[in-house]
Amino acid sequence: MNSFAYTRADGVTHAVAERADESTAAFIAGGTNLIDLMKENVARPTRLIDINRLPLTTITDTENGGLRLGALVTNADTAYDDKVAKNYPLLAEAILAGASAQLRNMATDGGNLMQRTRCYYFYDLATPCNKREPGSGCSAINGYNRIHAILGTGSPTGDVQCIATHPSDMCVALAALEATVQVTGPDGDRTIPFAEFHRLPGDTPQIDNTLEAGELITAIDLPANGFSKNYAYLKLRDRASYAFALVSVAAALEMEGETIVDARIALGGVAHKPWRRPEVEAMLHGKSASNDVFQTVADAMLDGAQGYGHNTFKLELAKRAIVRALAQAAKLN
């Protein structure tokens, strides 16, 4: 861990101003990922701006019938919040499938979005990594890539730059729910649709998301529809708990009788960001729930997927997981 200065921000404006003054500073909230990365010398901020005392710690109703999650609400408080548990059980289940109770008590909702991708090589300074050192090469492509991406790894130049995956469970549910991210920064406030918040590696794998320099997440807005009747979060991993997903599926259906009228499918553990394909989801509209239909959708969701050896099993696993999650959401059987 390098030497750094510390500032405790006493308001959002203060935090943003401090960050604007020092481009190599970083905001710190729960710290569960940033401090880990600092101990590995992967992150080396010159200053930490502690935002934990900012008034972003409540869950409130929004005008359009949704919920606003303050950026500093902990993952645990979110999952166990009465309104979240009742109206957004998919989100609550996804959160509780992640990390451990202790980490969920520390990690904040805004911080959850800011987790960096998980990759053995990104975390290990002894090995080349394009995300850590652009241009140094990706060790995972020809290395040990069990946990790595199978989708969205392409780049404009044709050379795959990075096959790391986003490790969040919460974000997979947020992607399915089509949350929006409220941010503020030197140029004022803006709203980022969830699908546009995280990005694919392309030719700039060092950039995980579309935040501009100095921007701060203030809240995450959940739209009114929480798909609370027909949903499933399925997480597959190498032990029963306290492990990152190999593949996870957030499935949410809106049904009228036997007929699906709206569908959302988000995948975790397969790409640099939570993976969605709205055009594939649309294939379910007007269909009756059945494993055959779900299989067709699963195949389409994985269209173009590519394995790199150790992770090639994910191509089949993800399909099976999609079918199972949709079946659970539709309450088949």
């Binding site: 053995y120 090589y121 002894a126 290395g143």
Partner: peptide, 25 residues
């Protein structure tokens, strides 16, 4: 403990990715 033979280096050198049984197992 998985070794990357490109480097002769064990890559899952932590308790998040060297999986020992947890309570739920």
């Amino acid at each position: 403990s998985v070794m990357d033979h490109q480097f002769g280096r064990i890559m899952n050198h932590n308790l998040a990715e060297y999986h020992v049984a947890v309570n739920a197992d």
